[in-house]
């Protein structure tokens, strides 16, 4: 069983999508970024489930935007990676690179 602080693949993909999107990171573009990366349709509900888990862990913070008519009068929820989140991503990258080294079949 992984330690509670370890980042899963979904967590890592969402955090990287947040870093790429910057200030415009809300559900729709985050979903598109992940879809382009995995090359298959994804459920926005599962993206939100991951984001909520990351918010609970303090890796992501949220901000509510203004409601717009094309969204049925519902407000956007913007997500931003925190300093702790960036550190977790760096640590995950280091761990993966360490494991990656010395594997010619993955070169």
């Amino acid at each position: 069983m992984p330690a509670p602080t370890a980042l899963g693949t979904n967590d890592l993909m969402i955090l990287l999508a947040l870093m790429r999107l910057g200030d415009d990171a809300y559900g729709v573009p985050i979903g598109r970024e992940v879809e382009q990366a995995v090359r298959r349709p994804i459920a926005l509900a599962s993206v939100y489930a991951t984001l909520d888990r990351l918010v609970e862990r303090g890796l992501v913070e949220t901000e509510v935007g203004d409601p717009t008519p094309e969204r049925g009068g519902r407000a956007k929820k913007y997500f931003r990676i925190t300093g702790k989140g960036v550190r977790e991503v760096r640590a995950a990258k280091q761990s993966l690179l360490k494991l990656w080294k010395g594997l010619p079949q993955l070169g």
Partner: peptide, 25 residues
């Protein structure tokens, strides 16, 4: 916020996508 996102994105997607997203919610 999630339903707002699905509503916004549904304009560019098929009905199947929409119902799939609602089922997933």
């Amino acid at each position: 916020a999630l339903l707002g996102d699905i509503t916004e994105e549904a304009r560019h997607r098929s009905r199947l996508w929409y119902w799939g997203q609602m089922g997933a919610v």
